[in-house]
Amino acid sequence: MSFLEFTEGPLWYVALVVFSVGVAWNIIGILAMRVRGDSAVPRKSPVAGGIKAIFLHMAPHGGFFSRTAYHVIVGYLFHLGLFALLLFGSFHVAFIKEWTGLSWTPLPRWGFIIASEVAFAGLILMWIRRWTDPITRQISDRDDHIGTGLTMLAMLTGCFALGEASDGLRAVHMLSVELLMLYFPFSRLMHAFTFIFSRYFMGAAYGKRGYVP
């Protein structure tokens, strides 16, 4: 079995299973915990508050934009760039089609390159902030850096393989993505899924009181 066959075969299956089962287990594990009852008479609908919070917290509100602009802007650069290249890169579309049969129109190559540059710029700028802002220096831990590092690695190896010239580079990219997937469910990267519950629960608790902070 070649290295590529290994990373696109057994290792890919292992990573896929650990990732999906891990993420599901994590979410179910949280939601299976007791949901705190609250018998206070509501002023407004908790459900509406929860849904409002999900959207409200997509951007800073209450006059905080100028204070958090750096993080908001580079955060969006990274996330939007990542989603664009992940879901609309022609290689990724082809890969998804191979596995699921689903396919859609990919970005042209120049679009993919721009998305990648945007994602790289965002990720590097976020990582730099983590190292240079006294606040994030104080609060960051190993997990933060491993998560960022593995994401960076997956993107870098993806960029290396852009020439589509070698099986080796494709395999290295697969390997780094698999490492990221294996790490994901056990780390803070889980925020990609839990943010929606986190915002909802907060919005429901406060929406009931009349104001969603």
């Binding site: 949280i30 939601l31 299976a32 915990m33 007791r34 949901v35 705190r36 800073p60 905080f64 204070r67 958090t68 993080h71 955060g75 983590r130 802002d133 606040i135 994030t136 104080q138 609060i139 960051s140 831990d141 933060d144 803070r188 889980m190 925020h191 839990t194 943010f195 519950f197 986190s198 629960f201 907060m202 608790a205």
Partner: peptide, 22 residues
């Protein structure tokens, strides 16, 4: 004491540090 709400809150923090600004 940690229920579903507190668990998602404790787990979702990405250490962005913006809370200091408030």
């Amino acid at each position: 004491q940690v229920g579903a709400q507190a668990a998602t809150w404790l787990q979702s923090c990405v250490h962005c540090g913006e809370c200091a600004e408030a």
